[in-house]
Amino acid sequence: MSGGSGEWAVELRGVRRRYGRGAGTVHALRGIDLTLPRGSFTAVMGPSGSGKSTFLQCAAGLDRPTEGTVRLGGTEITGMNENKLTALRRSRLGFVFQSFNLLPSLTVEQNVLLPIRLAGARPDRQRAREMLAQVGLDQHGKRRPGQLSGGQQQRVAIARALVTRPDVVFADEPTGALDTVTAGEVLSLLRRAVDQLGATVVMVTHDPVAASYADRVLFLADGAFADSLPRASAERIAARLTELTATAGRTAPAGVRAPVAVGAETGVGPL
């Protein structure tokens, strides 16, 4: 890996996650090796039970891998104590969830500023206004989330995720609760955050249309990456996902990782 770890927003080396013991052991992740460059938009897809949620939780420091290491923005988080990990998540990571997770008692502007307040820094109202302008809500800062549509609430969540200039934004099914038109608007915002603001986005989704906005789609199957596609149409992504779903459970056994396309130009693949 040339250039040192500073060029990578996300690095996973040999990440495994097991739940339970003995015959009841579940191998949720079977040895993930992955690097994602800064300023990239990556979608992660896979059949139900493929390990998507576990991957996101381990990559974002919300769960600890059984084996392996995770680095975010060049910082290894695997051995961090919970206090340091919480501080890192508040200051250097952004999160966008399907359910928006806005606090109804706070104004839109206060919701956007929340990560800064939780990190113990002085709230930067100008920064909040700038981020709301980026998502087209600069006139809505004094409203409450309940006064906004679902799409507008997700825009607020994106502004909140970006306000600290995080190393990575993790998005978990960000369009799952939105209609098709509104989902497209939200995905375009995430795309612009990467292209214009230099953000790094890692999105777990079941929707091939959503995945088509990403620079690269990674496919998980039985806890391992089985394939990847550079930016592709929704139709091509759906076809590949259908193939993987049909063969789920007949992939490599534990300890054997299916190959992922590797190339210096992609920044994705084994280290």
Rank of each mutant, 00 (worst) to 15 (best):
G51Y: 02
K84Q: 13
A23W: 00
Q196L: 12
S53F: 01
E185Y: 04
A239L: 04
I116P: 02
E7K: 05
V260S: 10
Q147D: 11
P47S: 04
E76V: 07
G61A: 07
R89S: 12
S212E: 09
G94N: 05
R236N: 15
T25Y: 06
F219G: 02
E235A: 15
R155Y: 03
L137W: 02
G223N: 10
R18E: 08
T69L: 06
A254F: 07
V217H: 07
R122F: 05
T75L: 13
E7M: 10
S188R: 14
G269Q: 08
D138N: 08
V96Y: 03
L148Y: 05
P104G: 09
E67V: 12
L162F: 14
A159G: 14
A252G: 09
L93R: 01
A171P: 03
R143P: 06
T42I: 12
M1Y: 08
L162S: 12
A159F: 06
L218M: 15
D215W: 10
R191W: 15
K142E: 13
L178G: 08
L178Q: 08
L241E: 07
S212D: 07
A23T: 00
T182L: 05
A199L: 11
T66E: 05
F55L: 14
L29R: 01
D138V: 02
Q154S: 13
G6K: 00
Q152K: 14
E243M: 08
V204K: 03
R240H: 10
V262L: 12
R90I: 06
E185G: 03
A248I: 04
S233L: 07
M131H: 06
F97W: 12
T164M: 15
V217D: 04
V181T: 14
R13C: 03
V96Q: 05
R64Y: 03
A248R: 01
V163Q: 05
A171S: 15
P166T: 14
V96H: 06
G146F: 08
R30P: 02
R92V: 15
S91C: 13
K142M: 13
V209F: 10
R64T: 10
D195H: 09
D138F: 02
